[in-house]
C-alpha cells in the first residue's frame, strides 16, 4: 500500500468516525429531548425575540 492509499484510507476512516460520533450523540439518551426541541420551537416564530441578550 503506497502513501496516497494510506492517506485516502485515513481520510475515509476519519469521516466515517465523525459520522458515527454524530449518530451516537444525536441518539444518546442525554440528547434525546434536546434533539427534538427545535421542531417545537420553530412552530412559534412569528416575531423576532425582543430581548437584547441572545442565547448563543
Amino acid at each position: 500500500m503506497d502513501s496516497a492509499s494510506i492517506y485516502y484510507l485515513g481520510v475515509t476512516l476519519i469521516l466515517f468516525l465523525a459520522f458515527a460520533a454524530i449518530v451516537a450523540r444525536t441518539y444518546s439518551k442525554r440528547h434525546r429531548d434536546k434533539g427534538e426541541e427545535p421542531k417545537f420551537r420553530m412552530m412559534d416564530d412569528d416575531k423576532p425575540k425582543k430581548d437584547d441578550h441572545p442565547e448563543n
Binding site: 469521516l15 459520522f19 454524530i22 449518530v23 444525536t26 441518539y27 434525546r32 434533539g35 427534538e36 426541541e37 427545535p38 421542531k39 417545537f40 420553530m42 412552530m43
Partner: peptide, 18 residues
C-alpha cells in the same frame, strides 16, 4: 403539526452530506 423526527432529519442531513 411539527415534523415527525428532528433527530432523524439531522442524521439524514449528515448522511447526505457525507
Amino acid at each position: 403539526v411539527p415534523i415527525y423526527s428532528h433527530r432523524m432529519g439531522v442524521i439524514a442531513f449528515w448522511s447526505l452530506i457525507f
